[in-house]
Design a protein around this nucleic acid. Structure first.
Lengths: 135, 135
DNA sequence: GTACTTCTTAAAGTTAACTTGAAGTCAAGA
DNA sequence: TCTTGACTTCAAGTTAACTTTAAGAAGTAC
């Protein structure tokens, strides 16, 4: 089984070596084997990194991912905490989704302002959205 | 016409006094009149702040808002730059929207993982989404 | 006149997720 | 042997949008 240097792992995972060292310091990656001081990784690190990236894309913070990887996944019965975490994150995503959609409609409204009293228009658009309870 | 202290403005606008001072230092607010060293604002500051908040909710950064308020709005023909800015921001919002929706579907997929090999499931869910070009 | 509140400034702290820089080690190649 | 390239650590820098802190001044109430 091939052992990978930090820059090989970095290239294959699409991150920088410094990112991997950083992940190590914050406890996201285990301390790898060393050969004359240099890190050597098993290939399995790549799927761990993929999990991290997937979780990141799903909106988890690195702290949450660390908890997930180190505390929840290795535990005997991860179900409860895991589902709680995902459900909570799903809630956050829904809120964020509404927020983004609100931003969009705000922009779409504002783009129909004439140029004459642009500031006034932005102001009244903001007020209108406030009225609509879209905040 | 009543003149407002910084904390009155702050309360009415729903921000902290320190935020107003900060806005002043970054050029978002003009230097207000002083009475024995203390800031006094005309009520019109409130609609300017509302414009700032609206623009912020629309996803503009403070730097963009500063440019908008100081450079574009006071200029004779703001049309082009203004529309460009809003269109670009609308693009960004659409991208963000897709991203958030992607996060959601990722989470919804992952929540259907059994507990047995959760890490594997997250990994393969991530791969699946990669395949779908949803990244 | 003193206690209290609100204001002032300038500088440093906060958060997340890294990145950059400085100074040094190590192994391989010409 | 000398150079080159990749690695090492640790500390500090980056970005955005503020917040906090410290130390002090000014106005108001009693």
């Amino acid at each position: 089984m091939a052992e990978l240097t930090i820059s090989q792992v970095a290239r294959q995972a699409g991150v920088r070596p410094s990112t991997l060292r950083y992940y190590e310091t914050v406890g996201l990656l285990p301390n790898p084997k060393r050969i004359s001081g240099q890190r050597r990784y098993a290939e399995s690190i790549l799927s761990r990194l993929a999990v991290i990236q997937t979780a990141q894309q799903a909106g988890f913070t690195l702290t949450e991912i660390r908890i997930l990887l180190n505390d929840i996944l290795p535990s005997a019965s991860p179900t409860l905490q895991w589902h709680d975490l995902v459900q909570r994150k799903l809630q956050e995503m829904n809120t964020l989704l509404q927020h983004v959609q609100h931003m969009k409609s705000l922009l779409e409204d504002v783009i129909h302002c004439g140029d004459v009293q642009l500031a006034d228009c932005i102001y009244s658009t903001g007020q209108k959205h406030k009225m609509m309870g879209n905040d």
